[in-house]
Write a protein that binds this DNA or RNA. Sequence first.
DNA 1: CGGCTCACCTGAACCGGTTTAGCCAAACTA
DNA 2: TAGTTTGGCTAAACCGGTTCAGGTGAGCCG
Lengths: 355, 355
Amino acid sequence: MAKARATIADVAREAGVSKGLVSFALNDRPGVSAHTRDRILAVAKDLGWSPSVRARSLSSDRAFALGVVIARNPEILSSDPFFPALIAGIETALAPVGQALVLSMVGDADAETASYRQLAAHGRVDGVIITDLRLNDPRLALVEELGLAAVTLGRPDIPSPFPSVNLDDAPGIRDAVRHLADLGHVRIAHVAGPATMLHGARRREAFDAALRELGLDAGPDGCLVIETDFSAADGARATRELLALPERPTAIVYSNDPMAIAGMGVAQRDGLRVPEDLSVTGFDDSDVGRHINPSLTTVSTAAQVWGEAAATALLRVVSGEQIDHIELSPALLVVRESTGPRPGTTTRPPEPGTT
Amino acid sequence: MAKARATIADVAREAGVSKGLVSFALNDRPGVSAHTRDRILAVAKDLGWSPSVRARSLSSDRAFALGVVIARNPEILSSDPFFPALIAGIETALAPVGQALVLSMVGDADAETASYRQLAAHGRVDGVIITDLRLNDPRLALVEELGLAAVTLGRPDIPSPFPSVNLDDAPGIRDAVRHLADLGHVRIAHVAGPATMLHGARRREAFDAALRELGLDAGPDGCLVIETDFSAADGARATRELLALPERPTAIVYSNDPMAIAGMGVAQRDGLRVPEDLSVTGFDDSDVGRHINPSLTTVSTAAQVWGEAAATALLRVVSGEQIDHIELSPALLVVRESTGPRPGTTTRPPEPGTT
DNA sequence: CGGCTCACCTGAACCGGTTTAGCCAAACTA
DNA sequence: TAGTTTGGCTAAACCGGTTCAGGTGAGCCG
């Protein structure tokens, strides 16, 4: 019944060579004649032998697995469409080459550090994909100290020993702002992610830059930017604050879709119509955003492509290759129904003197 | 610089005993005097030694890791709040005991099978948590054939060699239907998940049963149930079909939140107000559902608790324990704003639930 | 006192690969 | 022709644990 798995010794015996030579043939290293190699591989195939990852791990000091540590409140994570897509992308790169993905989801920074340490100490993975970069991210030093290979999703703000796989958020935000400006909006607000998270900060910078570029940055109340923790709840809170302003914005650029959707909810609750009274844009192009009413104008990031590119790059790093930073095509604006002309522009002439 | 990791041999030498005895002490097996064990453990601690997972894997034929294979379209997955919470729960059970989670996300059934096979063949995991049970699920036989331990999330419809960790959907659906009936609704429809997926089918059954129980099942058009693939897009499609009926339902019970949210979008687009003209309930209690307008009446499943319970149970199975089926407290209805009295009735609406 | 049991411990085999030192014969160099 | 290189291969050590057949000595029994 229980046919024992073939081992390298079985293959060696059957092929009439030594264990070592089978190993050489398998990893096609020089020192094996083409003829012998073929014979060995044929026998291996015949016996249905594939090398044991465990034994390989032990002797060659590699894990044949990559790691991802996600440190976010599960509640926030749950509504964010980014990670499932990212992971699906990673998987498409890993599965064909027999590598595995070790995933760790933790709640706070201490657990995050512990998780990286454990992954490294136990030799679970050969490298990690660092997501959700933060300002002055301590993980870069940590991961380097631990001797793990890594790539970062996005370009860190500090010198990094690791290559980055980059998907630029800025063009998406800039296009969103321009789109709104084209529609006549002048008072445009931004509901930003946490300033400590690099993509939150970068989107905000892109927002500021776009306003400046359009000469829209000198609002009477200064900057209309509110920082949040990326949760729908906080997005709703931020929206309430914005709408309570004496001169409320006519358009809001949100840093992710869940917040934008929550924001639309708040606005509608206030009796505002979207987009007639308030235009709204999201970020990440979630499935739900496509089907709400009105459907959400948002910025589409190819999370799956990103994951695949990052995993592929990391595999190359792990195998000793020297790789450069990789730039993917940037995030793109997807215009739907939640954005429209500034209130008054279609029915009334633009108010004079407001800027 | 590179201080080599301590090995069991170092500990043995330092403690003046044999390697074997250190191993015995570590796994506290009989045959080691209490005094010696303490000394060994003290030395181990002193040297900062923890056993190499790789070496342990090889010699003891265990992986010290659990696996989850998720087979869903990433698009559908992205909007589903269930999996991140589930995985976070699994992680809370795994991290403290030094086990790892190997996650695999695949697109189709073939890749799914291949993924289980690879996990088993490579000895990556000791057991798997089987999620998204299907009718007559072929994975039960597959996983058993592969010799993996397993637990299923939910009770399979066929005899299963594995214990199940169960969180009953039915009470949530039943409560939703009763809640709607209490509000005077008579024509209640259901937008179901795929009939091939057990939780889709079970929720539908619960829906049918609740209608029967209330004597509401003899609608003139027969059953108002439409099957979907769980995606927001398909939820929208189903809603359109329901609203196009000559005598349209006044309430719709959706099988998940994204479809309910999409459905509300469709209804509003049709000029219907929610809940004045149409009541809507979801399933899973997503973050976004709490913040849209109107907020979504839904059924809350403790996915995180479920994940933790499943992982804990599987760890016990892996360690040879014989465990029974585990029943968690069932899904609960959370009443919010998207449900109201049947159009035309004068019943006072119940207090909307907070949270 | 000899033989027995039993608790405690050692030594070595083993898991299934990788890697290195070294052997041998053929080919090349001078 | 003798000496050196080189391609092809083997044997054995090694990775860091687990496991098991025995060895040792103390305590007990008759």
